[in-house]
Design a protein around this nucleic acid. Sequence first.
DNA 1: ATTAGCACTCCTTCAAACTGAGTGCTAATA
DNA 2: TATTAGCACTCAGTTTGAAGGAGTGCTAAT
Lengths: 359, 359
Amino acid sequence: MELDARKTTILDAIIRTYLKTGEPVGSRTISKYTDLNLSSATIRNEMSDLEEMGYIIQPHTSAGRIPTDKAYRLYVDRLVEKKTEQVTAVNSLMIARTNRMEGILKQVVRMLAANTNYTAMLSAPSYKQNKVKFIQLSKLSPRQLLTVVVIDGNIVKNHLIDLAEEITEEQVLKLNLLLNTRFNGLTLSDINLGLISNVKEEAGMHSEIVSEVLDTIAEVIRAETDENMQIYTSGANNIFKYPELSDSERASRLISTLEEKETLADFINADEEEAQDDNGIRVYIGDESPVESMKDCSVVTATYELGDGLQGTIGIIGPKRMDYEHVMNSLKTVKATLSDIFGKADSGSVPEGTESEDS
Amino acid sequence: MELDARKTTILDAIIRTYLKTGEPVGSRTISKYTDLNLSSATIRNEMSDLEEMGYIIQPHTSAGRIPTDKAYRLYVDRLVEKKTEQVTAVNSLMIARTNRMEGILKQVVRMLAANTNYTAMLSAPSYKQNKVKFIQLSKLSPRQLLTVVVIDGNIVKNHLIDLAEEITEEQVLKLNLLLNTRFNGLTLSDINLGLISNVKEEAGMHSEIVSEVLDTIAEVIRAETDENMQIYTSGANNIFKYPELSDSERASRLISTLEEKETLADFINADEEEAQDDNGIRVYIGDESPVESMKDCSVVTATYELGDGLQGTIGIIGPKRMDYEHVMNSLKTVKATLSDIFGKADSGSVPEGTESEDS
DNA sequence: ATTAGCACTCCTTCAAACTGAGTGCTAATA
DNA sequence: TATTAGCACTCAGTTTGAAGGAGTGCTAAT
């Protein structure tokens, strides 16, 4: 059997109607809804075919039909083909003058959730391959050393070290020089234990201090690559707007997944080769999701780039009958907005607010 | 009418039973439950009295009784009197060797939620009155300046500044000196705009650069005092374990409150004079809560101190029939554990992990 | 190929009937 | 006088069955 034009139209009508109502849709509804001018009986025949082909199912005999994941997939794929018509320019003004990136991101994710009525998530930009740009040690007190490490993209990390023994200004100066000559320009992954022990030798100072300093730096740097990814979510309560998600059991599972930022990271780190259109938008429908507790949902994600290799992910989590069109447009807009605010060429200029925050 | 010993015993039995079951408790249950050896009829008479006195109510005629807020209050107050018998030493080993404070706090709050089966929240320690300890400017490139500010308690803040014009090493050195002499030892609130403009003049350098640098520092410092308090929550899904909280509407409101960290801050900043026992534990029952959406819940909070003026708050949010005893013990334990891990005297030694993190 | 018509299914709603937990009152009892 | 047994009554919750309605599948007619 083939999915001819008429079947497509009918399927489309079913999906659209179901997206709106959330109720199984019957043949008579479609018969009136479309401009095909077919009687409900004919529609029934076609629906029977569509069911056989796996695009729709009946939740129980003598109920209307609801679209399957396969149908949603088809629908989304066709949606993606339509070029970005109107990226409804979301008012950048809405984003108040918070010049701390964290604040802006939080606002963005909140706005996204409010705007779509679904749950939104956003991962703060992070780097994969970046280089150490600058290292500085400062003596706070005879036994206390402040380490500041700047990596490409102007991410600043710092750490305080308590020394077992005192250190002189001279030693600090020497260490600073050594560290900068040896580490600058290396990627985070280049800095392995081997290199570190090399430098330790080279330093030639009382090795205890050097050890401590280097270990700290190594750890600070490593911490960045580690999955200490920051993920914000908003609008969790929106799931209660969709009866098919809001029974206790499902809701509970979802909420607890949203709390587990680590799990959400699965979406961010999802297979790069995953089908994704030229806007970096990915759509996971039901079972396609990498996360178990979201098998009853659809998740749409987009990657935003801030230039300089810095990138993050935004995502919307909603029922399978989500308004894909709206969601995809919203994501496109946010993507554009974020790039606008932060995205500058690699000119050494910095997104304001890339400063670090204490936890 | 007076609350004699027998009435107290009965009320206690009612509360305890209701805490367990969540169902209205009837006279027969109590008649069996207590060692008073009274018939249900007698209990009924007493219950009738207790109802008149405002300790219990009937949700509807011919239902059992449930405790009112007044009853819970009584119960809790009596509980507090009992001295901390056994602070069941929670295994500190459970807290894996993450040496980043943020990580530990997240783990603590998660553990707390799992342990109590309620929702837990935790605010990261913050300072009220602290002094600038160290300021350092470093030249990253001719037009880029890294500002590092260390405040008392060894909180480190940093920020990158893009300069409109180039700056020389000499100027940086001079500025460093000036900043440290003028700002060191001042509390965050001491540093007002007046002082800043003073220093600007004093610097005598090309005022644009100085302006920019100072503004930045001021802002960085101010940001700390601002309510950028970090609050972690965990176990939101636990509310689904309690039918009285888990209907869509209530759950939705609760969840969205939990998302609004700002609202939760109300508990942290709650009136200091609020009744609080010598462990810094506060109990809000129902309407006593400062937060509207938690009128159906009870909230128990405790303040933990890390010495050095550094303090934060831990809290448990659950149904009014929460196991107050267990919760209070858990909080005590966590409080102790946190102080153990981080709390050192003001020796200049630092809780590991007070380093800042990029967002 | 399409459609009208009809029997059939099964979810939903509603009200009535039933159940059981619990109360309040009264009269008997210790 | 305090306690208790007993009984009538109340009312939420559950079950039951009937009615309604949406929707289907099939068949025969167009």
